[in-house]
Design a protein around this nucleic acid. Structure first.
Length: 441
RNA sequence: CGGGGUGUAGCUCAGCCUGGUAGAGCGUCGGCUUUGGGAGCCGAAAGUCGUAGGUUCGAAUCCUAUCACCCCGACCA
């Protein structure tokens, strides 16, 4: 834990007014809460509190990938054009790819994704059918030179993405890898405090039925989505995910009901659902594909089979927009006063509000509580500034920490302090001991 | 890339039409008073008016070019 988290010294440049550059809500709140600063169109610097949230999301994504048996590595942001020429995508990608020349005039690019890179790694180092199955992933910055970046970090040009790649020798095994990632995604988004619904996605020229977008529901979502209402009741964390077992039943349970994005929807099926149909706005936060030998064949990625013959690798790729999730979570979790962080990704669990900085009694009590909570491993942001109460409350509501621990002279006279739950607005008057107990439980 | 819009103090904006050498609120800094939901008073610092040309005695203001950013569309984790 960082040594000291006092607002008097923490770099949290909150804005009272909304900068003109931001239109969408999450973008406004991120700027106002001092989380990011735009560097140029679609490119952002992450300020301390924004980075803290980004890291928390990243950690959850990583834990769930690891749990599913994926192994983390790290590939570079800058790639050689040669690999992309091999797969045929160097020309296909178009101006969305940021192309760079190094001092020797060699063609390079800032990676928009890493299929070629991972295929190159795997073909060079994995030689036998015994080297599969494998799922490899990394969490790395990508660049896509979008025609029109917008919505703040939700559609930036530079973005942090988790991308996994699976390697198998049969389509059947590849499907098992797909199920693992499918389940890992359900768990990941649920842990992030989101209701994510897998929806059939367009597989493009590759064909097949194995591609899903994970869409979270938010009123300000970018696209229209349709699904059976049963999805709203399903809880991914309640199911036991045995990654060594058969995950097909889980996959089936989550895919047999109707769910579709605007591009894929089917009015006939929707009409048949009747009252069970939910129409909502959604934000795509993950996308998984099975694409077979699309890259392994042109790039010559094979392993030697039991019979001594080369087998082209069956592959899939699985993406999560990590930086996009920061904005997406805010879109799904906010009110008029500001952000309401799910506890799992909150930059701090508790905001300690000293209502009368400079008063011996409140200062003393705050120091005591601050020390006790930190000793118990609770992430606390202590507002020790010499500001008025109203301003402190407004700041706390804006930055959306799950709990506000309010210490003022009035309450202290009675030996009491207050705990406010940001999500519900509920306030409880408690003794300091009870409050600490509540927040460390 | 097509269409629309905006660039003036850290932020939100006024001033531009009708040219005369830059303002307000918030924030910041100092002081006093306040102290349970973005307080009040006094004082201060802070802007090559996006940039470059042009017109003019004189340009934030008029003209031209250019850059940046935002919105709608096509495209996307």
């Amino acid at each position: 834990m960082v040594r000291d988290m006092r607002l008097s010294t923490y770099f949290l440049p909150v804005l009272k007014e909304t900068p003109n550059e931001a239109q969408i809500l999450s973008h406004r709140l991120m700027l106002r809460a001092g989380m990011v600063r735009q560097a140029s169109a679609g490119i952002y610097s992450w300020l301390p509190m924004g980075l803290k949230v980004l890291r928390k999301i990243e950690a959850i994504v990583r834990e769930e990938q690891d749990r599913a048996g994926a192994q983390e590595l790290l590939m570079p942001t800058i790639q050689s054009a040669e690999l992309w020429q091999e797969s045929g995508r160097y020309d296909a990608y178009g101006p969305e790819m940021l192309r760079i020349r190094d001092r020797h005039d060699r063609e390079m690019l800032f990676g928009p994704t890493n299929e070629e890179q991972i295929t190159d790694i795997f073909r060079g180092l994995a030689k036998s059918y015994r080297d599969v199955p494998k799922i490899l992933y990394h969490i790395q910055w990508k660049f896509r030179d979008e025609i029109r970046p917008r919505f703040g970090v939700m559609r930036g040009r530079e973005f942090l993405m988790k991308d996994s790649y699976s390697f198998d020798i049969t389509a059947d095994d590849a499907r098992k890898a797909y199920y693992k990632m499918f389940v890992a995604y359900l768990r990941t988004f649920a842990r992030l405090g989101l209701k994510a619904i897998p929806m059939r996605a367009d597989t493009g020229p590759i064909g097949g039925d194995l591609s899903h977008e994970f869409i979270i529901l938010a009123e300000t979502g970018e696209s229209q989505v349709f699904c059976h209402k049963s999805f709203l009741e399903m809880d991914p964390l309640s199911l036991a995910a045995d990654y060594d077992g058969d995950l097909k039943p889980v996959f089936d349970a989550w895919t047999h009901n109707y769910a579709a994005t605007e591009e894929m929807h089917d009015p006939a099926q929707e009409a048949a659902l009747g009252d069970d149909l939910v129409t909502a706005r959604g934000i795509e936060v993950g996308h998984i594909f099975y694409f077979g030998t699309k890259y392994s064949k042109p790039m010559g990625a094979t392993v030697t089979g039991p019979d001594g013959q080369p087998i082209p690798l069956e592959m899939g790729s699985y993406g999560i927009g990590v930086s996009r999730l920061v904005g997406a979570i805010i879109e799904a979790c906010h009110d008029d006063a500001g952000i309401i962080w799910p506890e799992s990704v909150a930059p701090f669990k508790v905001g300690l509000v000293n209502l009368k900085s400079g008063d011996a009694a409140t200062d003393g009590m705050c120091e005591t509580l601050y020390g006790q909570l930190r000793a118990a491993g609770v992430d606390v942001l202590y507002d020790d500034r010499d500001e008025r109460a109203g301003s402190k409350f407004a700041t706390m509501d804006l930055i959306g920490l799950p709990y506000q621990l309010v210490v003022g002279p009035k309450g202290l006279k009675e030996g009491m302090i207050e705990v406010k739950t940001r999500a519900t607005g509920n306030r409880e008057t408690l003794t300091p001991e009870a409050a600490v107990h509540l927040l460390t439980a």
